[in-house]
């Protein structure tokens, strides 16, 4: 081994080149997921038993003209490939057809009105999930093997096993219906005229509180368990000993030296967690009648509004892809060893 050269120079990496390679990698895998989402969306109605026309019409008895219109709209008389081509072209332009229920409003319009509400509660909840999960996980790891650790673990496993929608129902029943501390549903008080922007914000916060708490309860435990396990492993590392030998305070050793390393597995879970929370939004928004995409999905199931349902699913897939890329960037930032 050429000792002298290795010992004298550092391993140089061309940052620009690596970054562009990373984007290409990311792009290809994102594209694959996107295609998968499109294929699933395209295939499901066509694979289901019964004539696609009946499915696309939501089972309503149609006149001949209406049937013909549907056949043309989806190109059902053409070959599968042509249908798929048409479908993709429409989807790329954001055209998922017209909602059955909100007829004649296009699906995309309805979804775009609902999306900000969903993102509001999801992102807020996510921040709290991470903070609480981190805090409890670090506490458990620091006292690994103790009673505190065992209790924290048992509680989080229990919380993990409770159905989210039920947690939401209980919160709504206790804090909404019985105690009256929070509104019973919606994202804001309908018809209210606010005196100031602050009043309006307060109203929105009040409506979002219970949904956000439900979402936090649904996911914090996973973060806690992941962080605990990685932190326990990190605390055995030699560099923790170095940090302690430096005379740093316990808090600094824990939250700086141990945490930065232990956080990495937690960060990889972020994107998966966001996808799970998107699913969770369906339940939470249903229970609290919160006007987001989740509620839209539930309503579409109820009213058999298939175009809407598919639009929502596709949009969720897009959000998940975006979050994946974002999380990858965070990971890159946190772990200097990663070079794509």
């Amino acid at each position: 081994m050429p000792v002298s050269r290795l010992d004298a120079g550092i391993v140089q990496k061309g940052d620009f080149q690596l970054t562009s390679r990373w984007w290409i990698n990311r792009g290809v895998s994102s594209l694959l997921v996107l295609v998968a989402a499109l294929v699933v969306n395209f295939a499901i109605p066509r694979l289901m038993p019964g004539s696609p026309v009946d499915i696309f019409s939501g089972g309503v008895k149609l006149t001949r003209e209406a049937r013909q219109a549907i056949v043309e709209r989806f190109g059902l008389d053409e070959s599968v490939w042509e249908q798929f081509y048409k479908y993709v072209v429409n989807a790329v332009q954001g055209d998922f057809g017209v909602s059955f229920f909100y007829y004649p409003q296009p699906v995309i319009e309805v979804i775009m009105e609902a999306l900000p509400w969903t993102l509001l509660i999801l992102v807020t909840a996510m921040i709290f999930q991470v903070v609480i999960g981190y805090w409890l996980g670090a506490m458990a790891a620091w006292k690994a093997g103790s009673k505190t650790d065992a209790i924290l673990q048992a509680v989080s496993l229990f919380v993990f096993s409770t159905p989210l929608f039920w947690v939401a129902m209980v919160l709504l029943y206790v804090f909404g219906y019985q105690l009256g501390w929070f509104p019973l549903g919606g994202a804001y008080t309908i018809g209210e005229i606010y005196e100031s922007a602050w009043d309006q914000a307060l109203d929105v916060i009040k409506h979002a509180t219970l949904p956000v708490i439900s979402l936090i309860i649904a996911q914090y435990a996973t973060y806690q368990l992941i962080l605990r396990n990685s932190m326990v492993a990190v605390l055995k590392e030699q560099y923790i000993l170095t940090a302690e030998a430096k005379g740093l305070s316990k808090g600094r050793v824990k939250h700086r030296h141990a945490a930065r390393n232990a956080l990495l597995p937690m960060v990889t879970f972020l994107s998966l967690s966001f996808a799970i929370s998107l699913g969770g939004s369906v339940f939470v928004e249903t229970v609290f009648s919160y006007p987001g995409v989740g509620k839209l999905i539930f309503d579409s199931v109820m009213s058999r509004d298939y175009p809407m349902l598919q639009g929502c699913f596709f949009l969720f897939s897009l959000v998940v892809i975006a979050v994946n890329i974002f999380v990858d960037l965070i990971y890159r930032f946190l772990d200097p060893r990663i070079a794509y």
């Binding site: 349902l309 699913f313 969720f316």
Partner: peptide
């Protein structure tokens, strides 16, 4: 990666 609950729904 696909959001599983919405897909199941």
């Amino acid at each position: 990666i696909l959001p599983r609950f919405p897909l199941m729904i």
